[in-house]
Design a binder for these strands. Sequence first.
DNA 1: CTTAAATATCGTAATATTGCAATATTAAAA
DNA 2: TTTTAATATTGCAATATTACGATATTTAAG
Lengths: 109, 109
Amino acid sequence: MGASKTDHFTDRQNEIATLAKAIGHPARVAIIEYLLKTDKCICGDIVNELPLAQATVSQHLKELKQAGFIKGNTEGNAICYCINEKTIETLQNYFGNIFTKLEKKNNYC
Amino acid sequence: MGASKTDHFTDRQNEIATLAKAIGHPARVAIIEYLLKTDKCICGDIVNELPLAQATVSQHLKELKQAGFIKGNTEGNAICYCINEKTIETLQNYFGNIFTKLEKKNNYC
DNA sequence: CTTAAATATCGTAATATTGCAATATTAAAA
DNA sequence: TTTTAATATTGCAATATTACGATATTTAAG
């Protein structure tokens, strides 16, 4: 290839790309949405909700966690996952800021 | 593998994942940010701005366009690209909605 | 300590992404 | 029409992602 040349872009650009990539899969969108609508957020529940094997769900959870999208807390022999509000806020602000700038700008083509 | 089982998720989940994936690369974040700060949005300018070959930039532009992130308009033998506000709005609303729901919810772990 | 339940990691096959040189296409200008 | 400039597409090698069974780890209970 073609390794992704992350070192040529700004930290901010890499940060946004990493976050976006983390939810750039329907299973991970589904996980976020499931965590949003439930208070009990044990992995076992998610495995039952999704059409994927336990190992696969665990991997997706790992990626979401590494990107900072979710936090995990061991509770007995289960794990309670929850959404990291800061990350959601970061993305909301990022797109909100772009939208605001677009409104103040010539943006047609 | 493992083909991505997009058919097991909702249309909305697939839509969000597709959009997120489209900016899930620093080069594409950089392209969006460049389009945001300039009025002249010719591809040649972008090639000069980014540390990537012309072919690579063209591919990234194609992906952004396919996902609905940008629109393109031929102007002579150049092309004017601009950001699709609707897509930005979609993402802003998506994350804004999650953030609002999180505030009204027990979200610790 | 042993067992059982929950979650994580490993190994691996299938597929997708990334990057670029080379080449093709497109559109204006000469 | 030929040339020139701008952008797109093709072909291909390197790498990353995705999925899952099998296995390992972790934690609580017995």
